[in-house]
């Protein structure tokens, strides 16, 4: 990612203004600290601002693949009116979840690439959000024998790994076709 766009001086107090009362009202027993430009995996993530949570309810934040942590992150960014292109610039974290998840994704990517090389059959991951798909794509840059592509419609987009020479399927899998006008069909069935 390019140079910094967000700084604590500029938006730190706005993050506080949204987050502090929210955590209190929801009775989440956590504290957080904000810092600039911290990352354990500079090749994969370079947030301008990191917000790290600690406290008794950190497990609640991290349950279901950090569902609550990511919900807080998303709403905070929406409250700051950040365009979605900028959403990798702020990273909410707790117990090094982000770094561990990147490790996990890298290992999955490597294992899947091995499998595709061995079998010559494309491999399809489960649906992931854009940040996680990006990690998979980046992890495979050093694998010239395979290539990766995101496919599927919004919300269900997933990464597919192909052998380097194999073209993508001609038509990407379509969402279920719109229901056919049943009235017309039954009429024609009756003739």
């Amino acid at each position: 990612m390019s140079e910094k766009k967000y700084s604590l001086a500029k938006i730190g107090s706005r993050i506080d203004a949204f987050l502090k009362p929210l955590l209190k009202r929801a009775r989440f027993q956590v504290k957080y600290e904000m810092s600039e430009g911290e990352t354990a995996h500079p090749d994969f993530e370079n947030p301008d601002i990191t917000v790290k949570f600690t406290g008794a309810d950190v497990d609640l934040l991290l349950a279901n693949r950090a569902e609550l942590l990511l919900a807080l992150e998303q709403l905070t960014m929406e409250s700051l009116r950040m365009p979605s292109d900028d959403h990798a610039r702020i990273s909410f974290d707790a117990n090094d979840y982000r770094a561990l998840r990147i490790e996990e994704l890298r290992m999955s990517a490597a294992a899947a690439a091995e499998k595709v090389k061995r079998t010559g059959v494309p491999f399809s991951f489960n649906p992931m959000n854009s940040r996680e798909r990006r990690v998979i794509h980046l992890a495979l840059r050093s694998e010239p024998a395979v290539r990766s592509e995101s496919s599927g419609t919004a919300g269900f987009r997933k990464v597919v790994i192909y052998p380097a020479g194999m073209p993508s399927p001609a038509t990407p899998p379509e969402p279920p076709a719109p229901p056919r006008p049943s009235r017309g069909r039954s009429r024609s069935a009756r003739r």
Partner: peptide, 12 residues
Amino acid sequence: TARSIRTILGAA
């Protein structure tokens, strides 16, 4: 966004 609000509501 609605899903995120629901997640927070669920946890709270």
